[in-house]
């Protein structure tokens, strides 16, 4: 099952509302990030929020109590705007799980994306490293796809950015895949990115939810 399940979860065509998200890229560009800095922005996400979320998914998949994972994730996601956007993204996974009759559908309505993803990965029999890779890939690829809308370029260019992150992604996957306890979830933050994302709730001409 996990053979195609990991691919499904990483696929932008998975009907979970992924097209409404930009993984922080639109807030960053509105906040002053130069399009030429998007590759560096991907590195920052990989080192910070994408890693936190991937670890959260891994720990959820490992079967840690969801309330404790939620506390740990929320403590590492101080902006209520960022948390609310993650909850909306999580709803897409819950809805998918409900339609398909998976246990993840029993999670509370305010379950954020990384926990919903980890739970879905558990339902689908994914390995820890697979869910970590899916979480990180989805985060970075979401930013790459949004880049094509926000700062259009040859669509092959972001593919190159992502491939350039391949080794650090593997390292991050190896780092977080072994985690099992909520308190082990990394907490590295990117202050400006967080401030940009927080300001997004009041941005007047945004295309993406977050």
């Amino acid at each position: 099952m996990s053979g195609i399940a990991a691919l499904l979860l990483a696929d932008a065509r998975l009907p979970a509302g992924g097209h409404t998200q930009s993984a922080g890229l639109e807030p960053a560009l509105l906040g002053g990030l130069e399009p030429t800095d998007i590759p560096g922005f991907l590195r920052t996400r990989l080192a910070t929020s994408a890693r936190v979320d991937a670890a959260t998914a891994v720990v959820t998949r490992a079967g840690a109590p969801v309330e404790q994972v939620l506390d740990a994730w929320a403590a590492r996601t101080p902006s209520e705007v960022v948390r609310a956007a993650a909850v909306e993204a999580g709803r897409g996974y819950l809805r998918l799980a409900r339609t398909l009759g998976m246990p993840t559908s029993l999670l509370p309505r305010d379950t954020p994306r990384p926990i919903a993803l980890g739970s879905l990965a558990r339902d689908l029999g994914l390995a820890a490293a697979e869910v970590a890779r899916v979480a990180i890939y989805d985060d970075l690829q979401t930013a790459c796809a949004a880049a094509l809308k926000l700062a259009p370029m040859d669509p092959a260019t972001p593919v190159g950015w992502l491939l350039a992150c391949a080794d650090p992604i593997d390292e991050a996957v190896a780092d977080v895949a072994k985690l099992t306890e909520p308190q082990q979830i990394p907490a590295t933050t990117a202050p400006l990115m967080e401030l940009w994302q927080h300001a997004h709730s009041t941005a007047t001409r945004r295309l993406f939810r977050a």
């Binding site: 509302g17 409404t20 909306e88 809308k149 295309l207 939810r209």
Partner: peptide
């Protein structure tokens, strides 16, 4: 309000998740 990520067609046709929610 549903924000569609500049995909208004997708949001009502193929991936209706955000609207359905």
């Amino acid at each position: 309000a549903v924000e569609t990520g500049a995909c208004p067609h997708t949001a009502i046709r193929d991936d209706i998740t955000a609207n359905a929610i």
